[in-house]
Design a protein around this nucleic acid. Structure first.
Length: 289
DNA sequence: GCTCAGGCAGGCT
DNA sequence: AGCCTGCCTGAG
């Protein structure tokens, strides 16, 4: 994979260009439901923020471009954030092997969703975002998160517009439950507050949790009020890159009922079960439109 | 208007 | 251990 660095005079930002990238699709990656803060700028580039910086990402015919990034930043941050350090040939094959007893649905799902990369998002952002997602619809989830970020985050100016960092736990604790509810979070306000307190207190510490098994981490997350099995597994998959974690939401319940009426032994789907889940989720949503 | 959304807690049996 | 039911709010 060849990496070159350049400067885009039109956008007035440095960029990094990677040639020969396979298994990447910007639209699928950013709209598959794993993240809520990246949007198509109308120019085929997905813009958003992560880790306090704003970037744009585009991909066409093997060429992936990360705008507003130097090569150094790419190596330090975006390579892992975008999941480009992983070999999706290996991952897709592993998934295919583990789903062998269950028919060819997974093969259709993989080919439909190929190019989705599981992002390595910030743990706190994933935790807070998926608490907000419960019993909620995607347009409103995005709206709430955008409003919280605009109200509590820091400004980032790039591409001639203003982005905002994700609110810190402390900034949410500062405004309290009523303050959080003022952002139209509804009954989730107290959950967000509890999560912020626990996170801020160091109870959900990435380094400390890194040595623990999925089941233990899951239990720890579920001790937060407002975090159940679904939210916990989303946080593990999207915010901790525990790719065996298999979130079961209403869509996946439908998938199981429809394609796997005899059930799926989720414990035996391998280390990339969560990525398989993402393919199945994307597949079912795309066929049901 | 009115249903329902990428769940969860709390209260039942 | 497994069912119910209510829940803020606003998109569709």
């Amino acid at each position: 994979m060849e990496i070159t660095e350049g400067f885009d005079n039109g956008k007035n930002v440095p960029f990094v260009r990677l040639d020969g990238v396979r298994h990447f699709d910007a639209a699928r990656t950013f709209t598959c439901g794993q993240c809520f803060r990246f949007d198509d700028g109308g120019d085929g580039i997905y813009y958003g923020t992560a880790f306090g910086k704003a970037i744009g990402v585009s991909y066409t015919d093997g060429v992936l471009t990360v705008y507003n990034s130097t090569a150094r930043e790419y190596d330090a941050l975006w390579n892992k954030f975008l999941g480009l350090d992983e070999d999706y040939d290996i991952i897709n094959n592993d998934i295919s092997e583990h789903f062998r007893p269950y028919g060819d649905t997974i093969d259709k799902a993989v080919s439909t969703g190929d190019g989705i990369r599981i992002l390595r998002q910030d743990t706190w952002e994933a935790l807070c975002s998926f608490i907000i997602s419960q019993n909620n619809n995607i347009p409103r989830i995005k709206k709430i998160i955008a409003a919280l970020s605009q109200g509590l985050g820091n400004e980032i100016n790039a591409f001639g517009r203003t982005f905002y960092t994700f609110p810190t736990p402390e900034s949410l604790i500062n405004i309290g439950i009523d303050g959080i509810a003022a952002y139209r979070t509804g009954f989730r306000a107290k959950y967000i507050y509890d999560a912020a307190c626990r996170y801020s207190a160091g109870e959900i510490d990435v380094k400390e949790l890194s040595g623990m098994k999925d089941a233990e981490v899951c239990e720890k997350l579920m001790s937060i009020s407002g975090v159940g099995p679904k939210v916990a597994s989303c946080v593990m998959l999207y915010g901790m890159h525990r790719t065996a974690s298999f979130p079961i939401d209403v869509w996946i319940k439908r998938v199981i009922a429809k394609y796997y009426p005899d059930g799926l032994d989720i414990e035996k789907l391998g280390n990339y079960a969560g990525i398989a889940q993402q393919y199945l989720f994307y597949y079912e949503r795309s066929v049901s439109v």
